[in-house]
Amino acid sequence: MTTNNQATAPKKDKGDDMIVIEDLNKWYGSFHVLKDINLNVKKGERIVVCGPSGSGKSTMIRCINRLEVFQQGSLTVNGIAMIDDVKNIESIRREVGMVFQHFNLFPHLTILENLTIGPIWVQKKPKEEAEATAMKYLERVKIPDQALKFPGQLSGGQQQRVAIARSLCMAPEIMLFDEPTSALDPEMIKEVLDVMVELAEEEGMTMICVTHEMGFAKTVADRVIFMDGGEIVEENTPNEFFDHPETDRLQLFLSQII
């Protein structure tokens, strides 16, 4: 399994730096959550972040689209530096799509409206065009027949696929996944992972995914990052990461989850 993963995930041309994080520090009050984070993500690169809960992995990726504010260091997304300015934040958010653990679909809107609200209001696209794009992505995630239902009428797996489609409708350069399968029933995890694998392999999307699905990490990731206590403890290719962990902390972590 681990030996041929490079073949199943052919590398697209990895171009320029998509995300550059330098010496990033963040505190919640006096609690130091992120410590000297340095991370470069190239265009088209797929990164899986794992680690125990409370290690700061979600906080780190939430910094990338400014759902969390950091106090020190710098962060650049597709050449745009993150500074405390509304215009700047909006243009970064346009580059970045995010999928949440609890889907966070808008319960008062139909699936189709969930998908078109961003394109119509943020990108000012005509309604017909936005709906056509939405249907295209709903087909990509294999639920075009649910377009007129409300989120509450869908299963968890379907909701998460809609959430992925909603992000894709904004044509982002980068997708962030914050534990996308943790809130799902076991039978639904696969349908969501399949969509994510397809996205990685066919679109060459730049992805950062916080997950504990190690199978996903092995098939899709270019790099796996292990975080603990707010630091990046180890980062490596999946093969090296799982087979030859360098630190005892990662060894312990792997021994407990696999």
Binding site: N65, R66, L67, E90, R93, R94, V96, G97, M98, F100, H102, N104, L105, F106, I117, G118, W121, V122, A163, R166, S167, M170
Partner: peptide, 13 residues
């Protein structure tokens, strides 16, 4: 839920 605000932010509203 806080997630509604975050989802709205993340799609750039």
């Amino acid at each position: 839920p806080q997630g509604q605000y975050e989802a709205a932010d993340s799609i750039g509203l």
